[in-house]
Simulated assay, not measured.
Amino acid sequence: MTLRLKPADLLFIKTIPNDGDGFAAAISESTGAYSHVAIATSETTVIHATPKYGIIEETLADFLSEHAQVECFRMLDIDAPTVLVEAKKHLGKPYNNSFYPDADGFYCSQLVVAAFANQVKLPESVMSFGSKETFISDYWQAYFDKLGLAVPVGKLGSNPEELATYSGLEYIGTLSDAN
């Protein structure tokens, strides 16, 4: 049986160790196994926040060509068209590189929180940019030094791992480009 996506399903990306994506690895090191999340807009399209292009809608095939390990979850008891209207309001906006809550644009999980906000209060918590060993990892310190900003430790935000644990989500399966 092939998994069929429905509008407003959430697609979580698991980081593949040593795949060369330092950004995803740093997110996973700080927050957990998931480093990215997208929203299905149909069976064949997704909307998500990307560092390279900002908020975009693209085909599922293109999304899967960039992301190998995709786990899908469905939000229970929501009005999917309302979620999609909210998400699509942000198409073309920039990626929130700073992760500051009041910055322009959105990072991936911030977009999801905004898209569902009229129906569900998704979890947010104090952001972490460290690991089990360090409060702020060398990767994140260098990243924010390049931006000329302080690391936003202590700011309220979201992350894919935390969203995936939300009690109103139901795991529906995995996707691969073989589907």
Results as ranks from 00 to 15, higher is better:
S65M: 12
S137Q: 08
S131N: 11
N18E: 15
P123V: 07
T44V: 06
L122R: 03
V46H: 08
I136C: 13
E170V: 12
V37C: 13
F135D: 06
A40W: 01
D145H: 04
Y100G: 05
S35K: 07
F99C: 06
A178E: 14
D9A: 01
M75Y: 01
P101Y: 11
L91N: 15
D145V: 03
S35Y: 08
A25H: 10
K14P: 00
C72K: 01
D79A: 13
Q141L: 14
G168D: 03
V126D: 10
G54T: 06
Y171F: 15
T134C: 04
N179D: 14
V153D: 10
D102N: 14
L10G: 10
S109E: 14
C72A: 13
I13F: 02
Q141C: 12
F63A: 11
I172V: 12
S176G: 11
T82C: 07
E71F: 12
P160T: 05
S131I: 05
G92W: 09
N118F: 02
K132G: 13
Y34R: 12
L11N: 00
A150T: 13
G32Q: 05
Y34S: 07
C72G: 03
G130M: 03
K88S: 15
I78F: 02
G54A: 14
V37H: 03
L175S: 04
I172S: 00
K89V: 03
L76P: 00
K132C: 05
L84M: 06
T15K: 02
